[in-house]
Simulated scan of single mutants.
Amino acid sequence: MADALALLAALGPAWSWVIAGLVLAGAEIVAPGVFLIWFGLAALATGLAAALIPMPWQGQTLLFAGLALVLVGLATRLHRRAGRHDAILNRADRGLIGREGVLAEPIVQGTGRIRFDDTLWRIEGPDLPAGGRVRVVGLSGTVLTVEAA
């Protein structure tokens, strides 16, 4: 342990940050979670800043903490935005909105059935005869809401 500390002291603070950044980025590869990479990038940026601008270790630590907060916050925001699209992944019913089809059964008293691909769906909408064309405009649970197309 003493040898490692002596080596880091000999390399200087900038290289210590760069090595820490590479170790954190490598840890992200070994144990993926899309979290350590941001700390690794913050450490790399701190190392580059420490190499260009002489600053005490307190300033380097504050810079690292600030960069880590900003990067993790940005990544969280981007992940949430992308998560909205992931919510419809593997949800065939969400892909039906806007789709048009032919009624398999008539819509009587507001309910009927329609076939999309290999599934027979319950639908709600205006009364229409079998064979009528409809467009899916909404979804409530497993029941599609349709209108005449």
Rank of each mutant, 00 (worst) to 15 (best):
A2Y: 01
D3A: 14
A4E: 09
A4M: 12
A9T: 14
L11V: 05
L11W: 09
V18G: 04
I19H: 08
A20V: 12
G21E: 07
A25H: 10
A27P: 08
I29N: 12
V30I: 14
V34G: 03
F35R: 05
I37W: 12
W38M: 06
F39G: 00
A45R: 11
L48M: 11
A51K: 15
M55R: 00
G59E: 06
T61L: 14
T61Y: 10
L63Q: 03
F64P: 05
G66V: 06
L67A: 02
L69F: 14
L69I: 12
V70Y: 10
L71G: 00
V72F: 15
V72N: 10
V72Q: 05
R77H: 14
R81P: 00
G83N: 10
G83V: 02
H85Q: 10
A87N: 10
L89N: 12
R91T: 13
D93C: 01
G95N: 02
I97H: 14
G98P: 06
R99V: 02
V102W: 05
A104T: 13
E105S: 11
P106V: 02
Q109R: 12
T111K: 15
T111N: 11
T111G: 06
T111Q: 15
R115H: 11
D118M: 15
D118E: 15
T119S: 06
W121T: 03
R122I: 09
R122Y: 11
R122G: 12
I123N: 06
E124V: 03
E124K: 15
G125H: 09
G125E: 08
P126V: 02
D127W: 12
P129L: 00
G131S: 04
G131M: 04
R135S: 03
G138N: 11
L139S: 03
S140H: 09
G141A: 04
V143Y: 09
V143M: 07
L144Y: 03
T145K: 14
T145S: 12
E147Y: 04
